[in-house]
């Protein structure tokens, strides 16, 4: 019994990232990687760098949602909680105690994981809709608390104090966006590597099993609640990293924005659009939706004109109606068909 399970693990580990990628796909992947590394030297305008930083940031956030929803099958509508915790942890520690954001990053991940336990232990036993609604309400509640909490600046938020000396220590770069770009790229690389590993680990298989067949998984002795909480913790820690990064990038904390339901929604939209439960789906979703949002803001201009959200909403509705496995599966299908052609 245990022997066959190890075999299954072996075959699964031997499985390539894509279903048997043809040469041109591997070449494309390598070219994309090279482009990502060289990007800030090819596109030197501030806007194009900002756009790519946002794509990377959202790719990380969407992946965090993917861990809890795509892998363990629990629809969290409160991911903004951990984004906010990450941002606040590093900024409060830095602004009030002068602690480097690197430490703040770790503290934020720890606090987010603890918050995920606190939220997850009672609520992850709930099935489906109940959990989704619970996270929606908790997210909204946390926002209310932070908007009233004087010690962290209440509704007006906090500023990250400007430090011009030793930028890498203070994680602030005032003259160029390039360091931010590589920081984001590094965070995404680590995050995606972790999820890639996770998906092929015992834990990952258990999560996918309890997502697809909770009753069967439970009868095989998988501790459902504990595994879901674990996935939620990993997801929260990833989201927290994005939060800390965002705070260091914009240098302003605004509880209205950080804890907004919009953030929780957008990470969901990106993941589902790209393909939830897949490794590259969240990145694809971010790469589609972030430029859509930024360019619609340029073309249609101004705040309050929410063309991007209209498009997001319609896109996601169409995907849910016609292609629940996301856009990535369309590409995969095409590749597979090509590969099978003589």
């Amino acid at each position: 019994m245990s022997g066959s399970r190890t075999d299954m693990l072996k075959t699964a580990r031997a499985e390539p990232l894509w279903p048997r990628p043809p040469l041109w796909v591997s070449a494309l992947g390598a070219a994309a990687l090279a482009l990502l590394i060289a990007y800030p030297f090819i596109f030197t305008t501030s806007f194009s760098q900002h756009l790519m930083i946002l794509i990377l940031l959202y790719a990380l956030m969407a992946q965090s949602w993917n861990v809890v929803a795509g892998l363990s099958g629990q629809i969290s509508l409160g991911q903004a909680i951990f984004f906010g915790i990450g941002a606040y942890s590093s900024t409060v520690l830095f602004a009030k105690y002068g602690v480097t954001p690197w430490v703040g990053l770790m503290v934020g991940m720890l606090l987010s994981a603890l918050a995920a336990v606190a939220i997850g232990v009672p609520t992850l036993r709930l099935r489906g809709h109940y959990f989704a609604i619970a996270t929606l309400l908790i997210g909204s509640g946390v926002q209310i608390v932070f908007q009233r909490w004087d010690w962290v600046g209440a509704a007006s938020g906090l500023y990250v104090p400007i430090e011009r000396a030793s930028p890498w220590f203070y994680l602030q770069f005032h003259t160029s966006k390039v360091p931010y770009y590589y920081l984001a790229l590094g965070a995404v690389a680590i995050g995606y590597l972790v999820v890639w590993k996770l998906r092929r680990s015992r834990l990952g298989f258990r999560l996918q099993a309890l997502r697809d067949e909770p009753d069967a998984a439970a009868s095989l002795g998988i501790a459902i609640a504990r595994h879901k909480v674990l996935a939620f913790m990993i997801s929260a820690a990833m989201m927290s990293v994005a939060g800390t990064f965002y705070a260091q990038y914009v240098l302003v904390l605004d509880p209205e924005r950080l804890f907004s339901a919009e953030i929780s929604i957008i990470v969901l939209l990106m993941t589902v659009l790209g393909g939830s439960g897949t490794l590259w789906g969240p990145a694809l979703g971010a790469a589609i939706l972030v430029p859509l949002s930024e360019y619609s803001r340029i073309w249609f201009g101004g705040t309050g004109r929410t063309i991007d959200l209209i498009l997001y909403g319609i896109l996601i509705l169409l995907v849910c109606m016609w292609r629940t496995s996301g856009i990535l599966s369309l590409l995969e299908e095409r590749i597979r068909r090509r590969a099978e052609m003589p």
Binding site: A69, G73, I75, L77, G128, H129, A132, I265, L268, L269, V272, S276, L309, I310, Y312, G313, I314, L315, I316, L317, V319, C320, M321, T324
Partner: peptide, 15 residues
Amino acid sequence: PMLAQVCGTFGLGVA
């Protein structure tokens, strides 16, 4: 699947 049901109506709301 349920994920699509939640996200679908959610998307409608956002739009």
